[in-house]
Design a protein around this nucleic acid. Structure first.
Lengths: 189, 189
DNA sequence: TATAGCATGTAATTAGTTACATGATTAA
DNA sequence: TTAATCATGTAACTAATTACATGCTATA
């Protein structure tokens, strides 16, 4: 069976003690959402695949009359997770983002529209920063109490990076603004 | 017809004066690759769709005995591109990356393996930086000569951001290293 | 008592990839 | 003369999404 990144997301979450499919989805919304989101429609079939391959085991864990499955990572699953973490093969870095694509083509916009676009991108970066601070960092901080510290490291990396991008865009904004108001000669168009 | 980000990638490239499908693919490899890559198998059907919708026009432009199509953006196409650039609707920022996912789950690794992972991620970021510098910035600089400057702005944003990430990972590496060598008490495990 | 949240799943659709197939032109 | 590059397309597959369908439990 071929394992993909999403498979390891499941295995890793189970390894952290998350038990049900629903809880995995909830946990990713509070942790990996910004760099590896998922959906319930992806979680359930993936867990079934992993069970079929013997990487996780499933047991029924009803809550009153409500059916619920409890998954646990198997020894093979642990081994697969460790192998993936240690594997030197990494997909090349890329940052697929529609906002940056717009910026790339922004030359045909008027000065005001260029400025408006940069502002929107900056606001979006700041929104991401505050969401990470308010939603994701607290969860990571809780895990850190138990000695699991990399979620907090990742949250800090994300927050700092987006903050850096927001600052960069603010500087760009200032550059564009000074051109538009002050010297009209600088543009070269 | 529903337009997606890739549609605007085509329209924008045609707007910049790129003419054939093959040339669009080549141009993205030298410019938008890191934040919006594409493939020939995506380009050709998309151009056909855009032609069908009247956003681009196609003419035959053979080179000797070799067939070649020359596409041009239509007035409707221009309008659609401008509308997209001005639209305030932006997909929420996310940075889907498998490397960060590994880092998130790195707690179960040994100290040496944690360090090795961080090093690999840092090297990958540095690889991206140098690729941008060597492959993408020159193309953007050439465009800048004609007064098209946002490709260069985007190239700078990408380079600076990845450089920031590389530096961040280097700092993390130093922190992990000092823990591993110096004080064994700090870990808490 | 009704709404939000817990819980599991399938169906349909979307967006993208790699592999296949073909053939001309240019540069080493 | 042969390999790299130019050039266009299709087929098969992969990965992920949104929408649909169902029903229990806790809380306001």
């Amino acid at each position: 069976m071929k394992l993909r990144s999403s498979s390891f997301l499941m295995l890793g979450m189970l390894r952290l003690g998350v038990r049900s499919g629903y809880a995995i989805k909830r946990a990713t919304d509070l942790s990996t959402r910004f760099f590896w989101p998922t959906s319930l429609a992806a979680v359930y079939p993936e867990l079934a695949r992993l069970e079929h391959a013997g990487l996780v085991s499933r047991s029924e864990d009803p809550h009153g009359a409500r059916a619920r499955a409890a998954y646990e990572i198997s020894e093979q699953g642990e081994a697969a997770l460790q192998a993936w973490l240690r594997s030197p093969r990494h997909a090349p870095l890329q940052f697929r983002d529609e906002g940056v694509l717009r910026l790339f083509f922004a030359d045909t916009l008027s000065d005001e529209d260029q400025l408006a676009l940069v502002r929107r991108l900056r606001e979006r970066a700041l929104t991401a920063v505050s969401q990470m601070q308010e939603e994701i960092r607290p969860t990571a901080a809780a895990l850190e109490q138990d000695g699991t510290r990399f979620p907090a490291i990742v949250a800090a990396l994300g927050t700092d990076t987006y903050r850096y991008v927001a600052q960069w865009l603010e500087d760009l904004e200032a550059r564009l603004e000074s051109e538009a108001s002050g010297d009209t000669a600088a543009t070269g168009r």
